[in-house]
Write a protein that binds this DNA or RNA. Structure first.
Lengths: 115, 115
DNA sequence: CTTTTATATGAATTATTATTCATATGATAA
DNA sequence: TTATCATATGAATAATAATTCATATAAAAG
């Protein structure tokens, strides 16, 4: 293909790309969700919770690290509405609230190492 | 369910969770991929490239921001092997190389606002 | 060659995020 | 009521990441 035609094609593509581009709010929303799960300990927390609700110190055992750090990370995940919690006696039980996100994580895991 | 039984159940869950937990390398790998796409301008770049390859200044037009910043972001995406590039004359054309990641992004977009 | 165009790069700065530590809260048990 | 257990929180610090600026490189045009 000659240079000029190629250039026209790319211009057209750019126009289409701009039309399909999600809104800034959508981009922000998606970005912040991906950011929430783009951190090793938070990912681990989600894998730990994938089997059902766990109390904080079990989460701590599952992911390692100290209680305070895990608590902060749970807070981040809760703010992103990926997990939720309820109290039961003196324990607080955390669980996945957004299974879409979990589906995406499982999908990503399946794709690992198959390129 | 009484407290004691509940505790047993949770212990069992923790054990299962630990067994299902991906290896540290897998967690790292997934985390770094999610991190790469957990940033608004990089996400925009990927949506821009979803329609086909574009040269850098078209990407700059599509996402806004300055040339250097976009170049650094492209570098990040390339390091994560999510995009690739080739030279054509004096332009460098970027394109998606990991369509799994793009599938995940599209999926995430579809899920937005449907909870 | 020299200039221009397109892109990349490194270093410095700035901004964002995570971790730690000390302490607070809230529920139960004694 | 007091002590204890489980968890949360805020502030300080440490670590990581993004942006900018100046400059480098590589190809093409003149």
């Amino acid at each position: 293909m000659d240079r000029c035609k190629e250039e026209e094609l790319h211009e057209a593509r750019l126009k289409e790309a701009l039309q399909r581009m999600p809104s800034d709010e959508q981009i922000e929303e998606m970005g912040s969700r991906f950011k929430s799960i783009g951190e090793p300990s938070r990912l681990k927390i989600l894998f730990a919770l994938a089997g059902g609700e766990l109390c904080v110190d079990h989460v701590v055992e599952a992911v390692g690290g100290n209680q305070s750090a895990v608590s902060h990370q749970l807070k981040t995940l809760k703010a992103a509405r990926i997990v939720k919690c309820r109290r039961s006696g003196k324990k607080i039980l955390y669980s996945i609230s957004d299974w879409h996100v979990m589906t995406i994580i499982e999908l990503a895991k399946e794709h690992l190492g198959c390129e």
